[in-house]
């Protein structure tokens, strides 16, 4: 494990906001288990729990908390200077941080989604959801890490993207779905395990290409922004 990822992980788990990661996946699990135990038809509870909660809320919100936590939190409190005053090419700082963010998000979200997928349909759906969510975790993390360097309010902007763009406009204006990581994840999961539970709106090709583009594009942007990282003047 590189020193950058070690410090990043220590910082992530050492802050209290880490606890904010736990309730959402827990709610997802509780809803899936309860629905199954009460014998509700999976066609009834599947879409709202798997997509409405799991992919539309739990995945992006967990990715937002973690993605802005690995770099944005260090920029906020100024500790990022310690890592930046080292003779490291900036990609060697961005990539480990992105890896930690993606890994933590993927594990936090994929496990409850896998369980919920199995309970709703099959092991195949569970695995498909877990894989698609992990790919989504990478795309979201790249977006939120880059956002931490582009704005002083990454959490706010990230929330606007998730809630307004993906959540609200995605349901009203169909064109926005082409620029929605959530839709890519649904399309990928549905391709890996075709069921009646996931309604896709974008083609698998678009989803795969766009996920790769978003992940790579925002990573490159983050590396470039970190090269030009400026300390804001506080007194003068």
């Amino acid at each position: 494990m590189s020193t950058v990822s070690w410090i990043t992980a220590r910082g992530l788990f050492g802050r209290r906001r880490f606890l904010m990661l736990l309730p959402l996946p827990a709610v997802l699990l509780v809803l899936a288990v309860t629905s199954r135990a009460l014998g509700v038809d999976p066609g009834q509870w599947g879409p709202p729990v798997l997509v409405g909660l799991g992919l539309a809320v739990v995945l992006p919100v967990v990715a937002l908390i973690v993605g802005t936590g690995v770099l944005g939190a260090e920029i906020d409190d100024g500790t990022v200077v310690h890592i930046l005053t080292k003779p490291l090419p900036r990609w060697q700082i961005v990539l480990p941080k992105l890896a930690v963010a993606t890994g933590v998000t993927a594990v936090t979200v994929a496990v409850p989604l896998y369980v919920a997928g199995v309970l709703a349909h099959s092991v195949r759906l569970g695995l498909a959801l877990a894989v698609a969510a992990s790919l989504g975790a990478l795309a979201y993390s790249a977006l939120f890490v880059a956002l931490s360097l582009l704005t002083r309010r990454p959490v706010l902007l990230g929330l606007v993207y998730v809630l307004i763009w993906e959540g609200l406009l995605g349901n009203v204006v169909s064109g926005t779905k082409v620029l929605s990581i959530q839709q890519y994840v649904i399309a990928l999961a549905d391709r890996l395990a075709p069921t009646e539970l996931l309604g896709t709106t974008v083609s698998v090709t678009v989803a795969a290409v766009m996920t790769a583009l978003v992940s790579v594009g925002f990573t490159v942007l983050a590396v470039d922004r970190l090269r030009s990282y400026s300390v804001a003047g506080e007194t003068s």
Binding site: G14, H82, T85, P87, R90, E234
Partner: peptide, 17 residues
């Protein structure tokens, strides 16, 4: 970043892990 091989900085802001 290569300059940090020869340069050390102690900033005013008391930011530590």
């Amino acid at each position: 970043p290569g300059v940090y091989r020869r340069l050390g900085l102690v900033s005013e802001r008391e930011a530590v892990h």
